[in-house]
Design a protein around this nucleic acid. Structure first.
Lengths: 231, 231
DNA sequence: GTCTATAACCTGATAGAC
DNA sequence: GTCTATCAGGTTATAGAC
C-alpha cells in the first residue's frame, strides 16, 4: 500500500484543523477547507453532515487522546505511602507535558485549542470544557493532597493561573518567539514543560497573600445545581 | 442637563463592546449592534465609517488609558537608590492591578481584550499588541533589574507565563466562578491582584530548572528587522 | 442626523447528474 | 463518492428621501 495521499475525510480534517487555527473557526468557510483539501465543495456535507459536525470531529480527533494521557499520568502519581510533598513537580508535569508534546507534534491543533478556550462561542467552549472536566478534577484533588495547608479557594485560583500560563504558552508562542528575536524559539520548546512546571510549582508553594478566610474542606461538587449561572 | 441617554455614538460603542465580548467580533453583525443601541442600521457607517473602524474605536477607548496607567505606575517603581530586590511585588502589581481594576469597572471590555489576544485575526491582534509593546518593554527592563541573576531567556518565558495567567484571569473568570460554585466569585476579585502577584512573584524567583546556557546581556531590540517572521 | 430600500456579495446546504 | 448548479438567507455598505 502506497503512502500516496490520505483519503478525503482525513484531508478535510487536516485542512480544517490548520485553517481553523490560522484564520478562526467562524472565519473559515467550507469553500476554503475543501479547496485546500483538494476536494469538492459538497464533500464536507457528504462526509460530516455539516460544518458544525466537522468542527466537532476536528476537536475530538486529538483532544480525547490528550486528556487520556493526562489522566493516565496523573493516576500514576498517586502511589500510596510515597512522600507526597515531593511530587508537586511530577503532578504538574503530568498535566503540562502532554500538552507541550502535542504542541510539538500538532502545533495547529494546540493553537486552535487555545483559541477555543478564549472564544465567545459558548456552544463550542462548552463542548471543549466538558471534555476537560475529568482531568481538571483529578488534578485539583491531587494538588489538594500535595498542598494540604493551602486554602481550597486559593488552590482554585492558582489552578486558574496555571491554566492561563499553559494555554498562552502553546497558543501564542509565536509572539514570544518574535519578541525574543528567536531566542525563545521552537528549538527550546521541549524544555518549556520544565520551565512552566518550575514557575507554577513555586507559585503553588507561595505563601497566601494576607487574609485568612474560613475554609470548608469540600468542593461542593455534590450539591451542585445543574444550571449554574455565570458571573 | 439630564442624564437621560448618551448620544448615539457612545451608545454604539457600549453596545458593540458588550456584543463583541459576548458573541465575538466577527460573529456580531452591525444589525445586532444598532438594534441594541436603539439606532438605525446605517448609524455605524455614518458615525464610524465601517464596522472595522468601530472595532478600533471600541478598543482605543479603554486600552489607551489602561496602558498609560501602567506606564505611570511602572515609572514610579524606579526610585534610584531604593532596595530594588524588595520591590518585585510592586513592579508586578503596577502591571497587573490596573487590568483587574478595569475588569471590575468594564468586565465586557476586559473579556473582549483577552479574546482579541487569542483571536486568529492577525490584523486585530497586531493592532492590540502594538499598543502594548511600550508597557511590555518597560516591565521587562524593570524585572531584569530586579532579577539580575535570572537569565534573560528565562525571564522572557516567565513574562509569557505571567501574561497568560493574567489574561485568563480577567477573560475566563466566569469559568472559575462556576467551577468553584461561587467561592471564587466577583466579591473576591479585588483580592485577585494580590493573589496573582504572589503567585507570579514566587514563579519569577524560582530556581532555573536545569541547564545554564550562555546569555547575552542585550534584548536585541536594536538590530531588529522590521519584518520579523512568526515561528 | 436619521431613516428606508437596496445593491453586491458571501455563506452553508442540497438536489440531481455522473 | 464526486461533481455542478443553485437555493435561501445572511452580511456590509451605500444612495437618496426626510
Amino acid at each position: 500500500m502506497d503512502i500516496e495521499k490520505a483519503d478525503t475525510k482525513e484531508r478535510l480534517l487536516d485542512a480544517a484543523e490548520r485553517l481553523f487555527a490560522e484564520r478562526g473557526v467562524q472565519e473559515t468557510s467550507v469553500r476554503e477547507i475543501t479547496a485546500r483539501a483538494g476536494a469538492n465543495l459538497a464533500a464536507v456535507n457528504y462526509h460530516f453532515g455539516s460544518k458544525d459536525d466537522l468542527i466537532l470531529a476536528v476537536i475530538a480527533r486529538r483532544l480525547g487522546p490528550l486528556n487520556e494521557e493526562r489522566l493516565c499520568l496523573l493516576d500514576a502519581c498517586e502511589i500510596p505511602g510515597s512522600p507526597l510533598n515531593l511530587t508537586l513537580e511530577r503532578a504538574l508535569d503530568s498535566f503540562i507535558a502532554p500538552a507541550i508534546r502535542l504542541y510539538l507534534k500538532h502545533p495547529y491543533f494546540m493553537r486552535l485549542a487555545g483559541r477555543i478556550v478564549f472564544t465567545a462561542d459558548t456552544q463550542l467552549r462548552r463542548l471543549y470544557i466538558t471534555q476537560f472536566e475529568k482531568v481538571y478534577m483529578k488534578m485539583r484533588d491531587l494538588l489538594a493532597k500535595l498542598l494540604p495547608d493551602l486554602p481550597k479557594t486559593e488552590l482554585l485560583w492558582r489552578i486558574h493561573f496555571l491554566l492561563g500560563a499553559m494555554i498562552n504558552t502553546h497558543t501564542n508562542h509565536a509572539d514570544l518567539y518574535e519578541l525574543s528575536r528567536g531566542r525563545c524559539g521552537i528549538e527550546s520548546v521541549q524544555r518549556v514543560a520544565d520551565r512552566l512546571v518550575a514557575f507554577c510549582a513555586a507559585g503553588f508553594r507561595a505563601p497566601v497573600p494576607t487574609h485568612n478566610y474560613p475554609e470548608t474542606g469540600e468542593w461542593n461538587d455534590a450539591n451542585a445545581s445543574p444550571t449554574g449561572g455565570e458571573g
